[in-house]
Design a protein around this nucleic acid. Structure first.
Ligand code: ATP
Length: 649
DNA sequence: GGGTAGTATATTTTT
DNA sequence: TATACTACCC
């Protein structure tokens, strides 16, 4: 056994699996689909299957596992390493996007970008779209750049390109047809790719170059895809290409947890699996190991109302459990206070903060919850606070990226006048038009100094670690001095830059530290960002339901269960399909809970400074009364009362 | 070129 | 409410 590890050949890692799970694990050759409801051990089965392949003697490097988030990939990696007891020669475990980056970096010449191509975040993307619109004389006021961006994005994940895209009756599509090619041109000029390119360019690369495809096909003999129900067309096609020769694909998913159709995820992929891969073995898992009977019954009452689904059985040997607590708050403020009070009670009773999560439909809801947690001095972490999209952090990253890649215009533009160097709009335009000699003497000097600074950073980086270099940037640019002498806000910005130094130390000992650092920062989902690798990760997690996918917590609070907020509705009435997706989202939310679920809603909520009166969510009304108990009837929110009092004047 | 005050406009959800 | 953008002045 070339890769046998530690203990004997006895297959003790199989002992923790049930019969159906074992069947899936032992079926190693040919297509395999595991479809099952929440908490039935799909991810666990997938992880064990990887271990099994390795223990059988498969070269770990020939195994590929694709997960939905970087965090999920990281967790799987850790679990596999722990079970194997070694971390050399481990399988490739990553998201579709980081897989794309790796493949594209290896073959960057084929797609005409340099090795350090930049990955645009949604902000940069918006800027570029607006720029393209201006060039094409389209008014960004008249046509929303965001809508154009998301149309392009959807089209790309549907295998379309700027050339193949055709406009339809919707006037927006004609605008897209004009803007898209310009956007592509600008993007290329900047040596950048957007998120969707990471998938589509990879797909087109492999399709166009059979010799490159063959190389990856033979490298990865066993391919695994988690959360298969949320794959989009291009991801699906990419998978088909990769497994085309050996058909060793193991897909795992749950149609009821398809919650990303708004960005192209297509449930058809999982429904058609047996057609796509003839002879596929299908394993159904029916035993839930996560939640109490009451929680599962509630989740089923929600999901059974959907029509676009196949009814699944879900049973558990777990206890019946406590009834679901339902709290009707007068205001959003009071709702947050109540949640914080319950959380505090749990922590005081000895519950670990990290075993508790508060979920919500939209990001802005986190704010008021956060305030309540601060008042009660509870340890919490908002998953999804985008540390890396803060201006000051992006600025420092841009210095570093520009030092490595002088062509990265978006980075250079960001920092050429930050801190102020007397190079404004006009001067910058001259510089990028190549008319440097037209600059007045003072600005020319300023520009030369800036170039030298980038060069100095690059030279420094060659002999120092990422964290040292970032520290150097903060100093050498003068940002440290400027911000250190500034307002409290400036000082906080400086703190964030230092936080970035701390974060970067993670990469200091790696080979190709800078490559990996750039890639990871660009692809970081808000799942990980900061904290997850710090000592203070034992905190209550506040996050959207979308980001809670795949996770589990002992105690879960689902807040803001108000008609219009969850299910979410903006201008037009929801289509049938959208209604069902909201329902699936609710199913995901409920099934995160292991022991106890808490639901709450506020009759009054302020959105954009406008007070709104709410009706309880239909999801609350769907639950049978024997599952639910009204909570907090005597709950007295003193802080809230004070505020209400003053509000009257 | 740089700063500021006034306005308009948005929040689903994310890799 | 909070940010993004613009117009205008120094
Ligand atoms: N055979 C088993 N015996 C005991 N516990 C199990 C078994 N299988 C899974 N579990 C436990 O059940 C929980 C859910 O497992 P897992 O996260 O793999 O489920 P999942 O199907 O991927 O869930 P989801 O669809 O919500 O992502 C985990 O805590 C896991 O350890």
């Amino acid at each position: 056994m070339p890769y046998s590890i530690g203990y004997t050949g006895r297959m003790n890692y199989l002992e923790s699996l049930n019969e159906m799970q074992k069947e899936a694990v032992l079926h190693t050759e040919g297509p395999l689909l595991v479809v099952a409801g929440a908490g039935t051990g799909k991810t666990k089965t997938l992880t064990h299957r990887i271990i099994h392949l390795i223990k059988k003697g498969t070269d770990p490097r020939s195994i590929l596992a694709i997960t939905f988030t970087n965090k999920a990939a990281k967790e799987m990696r850790e679990r596999v390493i722990a079970m194997l007891g070694t971390d050399d020669h481990i399988p490739t475990m990553s998201t579709f996007h980081s897989l794309g980056v790796r493949i594209l970096r290896d073959h960057h010449t084929k797609i005409g970008v340099n090795k350090y191509f930049n990955i645009l975040d949604s902000q940069d993307k918006g800027t570029l779209i607006k720029q393209a619109m201006r060039i094409q004389d389209i008014n960004p006021k008249e046509w929303e750049p965001r809508k154009i961006a998301s149309t392009i994005s959807r089209a790309k994940s549907n295998e379309e390109t700027a050339e193949t895209y055709t406009a339809n009756k919707n006037p927006l599509t004609s605008i897209v047809k004009i803007v898209w090619p310009e956007y592509e041109r600008l993007k290329r000029e900047e040596q950048s790719l957007d998120f969707d390119d990471l998938l589509s360019e990879t797909y087109f690369l492999l399709k166009k170059h059979p010799e490159i495809l063959a190389q990856y096909q033979s490298r990865w003999q066993y391919v695994h895809v988690d959360e298969y129900q949320d794959t989009n067309t291009i991801q699906y096609k990419l998978v088909r290409l990769l497994v085309d020769q050996h058909k060793n694909i193991c897909a795992v998913g749950d149609g009821d947890q398809n919650i990303y159709s708004w960005r192209g995820a297509d449930m058809k992929n999982i429904l058609n699996f047996e057609k796509d891969f003839p002879g596929a073995k299908v394993v159904l898992l029916e035993t839930n190991y996560r939640s109490t009977q009451i929680i599962l019954e509630a989740a089923h009452e929600i999901i059974k109302k959907n029509n676009e689904r196949i009814d699944k059985k879900l049973v558990t040997d777990n206890q019946e459990g406590k009834e679901i607590a339902l709290y009707e708050a007068f205001s959003a403020h009071q709702e947050a206070s109540w949640i914080a009070t319950q959380v505090k009670k749990y922590i005081d009773e000895g519950t670990e903060p990290k075993d508790i999560a508060v979920l919500f439909r939209t990001n802005f809801q986190s704010r008021i919850l956060e305030e309540a947690f601060l008042r009660k001095a509870l340890p919490y972490q908002v998953v999804g606070v985008k540390f890396f999209s803060r201006k000051e952090v992006k600025d420092v990253m841009s210095y570093l990226k520009a030092a490595f890649n002088n062509d990265s215009l978006s980075d250079v533009k960001r920092i050429i006048n930050e801190p102020k160097r007397g190079l404004g709009k006009v001067a910058v335009a001259k510089i990028f038009a190549g008319r440097i000699s037209d600059l007045p003497k003072k600005q020319l000097e300023s520009y030369q100094k800036f170039s030298e600074l980038l060069d100095d950073i690059y030279q420094f980086a060659l002999t120092h670690t990422p964290s040292d270099t970032i520290r150097h940037i903060v100093k050498a640019t003068g940002l440290e001095k400027k911000l250190g002498e500034g307002t409290d806000e400036d000082k906080e910005r400086l703190e964030n830059m230092k936080e970035l130094v701390t974060y970067a130390t993670k990469y200091d000992d790696l080979e190709n530290a800078y490559d990996i650092f750039f890639e990871e920062v660009a692809l970081l989902s808000d799942q990980d960002s900061l904290g997850s690798n710090r000592k203070d990760s034992n905190t209550v997690k506040l996050m959207t339901i979308h980001s809670s996918k795949g996770l589990e917590f002992k105690y879960v609070f689902v807040s803001g269960l108000e008609q219009g907020l969850f299910p979410s509705q903006r201008d037009d009435a929801l289509t049938k399909h959208e209604q069902e997706e909201e329902r699936r989202l609710c199913y995901v939310a409920f099934t995160r809970a292991k022991e106890m679920l808490h639901l709450s809603y506020a009759k009054l909520r302020t959105i954009y400074g406008q007070e709104r009166i709410n009706v309880p969510s239909e999801f609350v009304r769907d639950l049978s009364s024997h599952l639910v108990v009204e909570a907090g009837e005597n709950y007295d929110d003193d802080e809230g009362a004070v505020e209400t009092f003053y509000l009257d004047f």
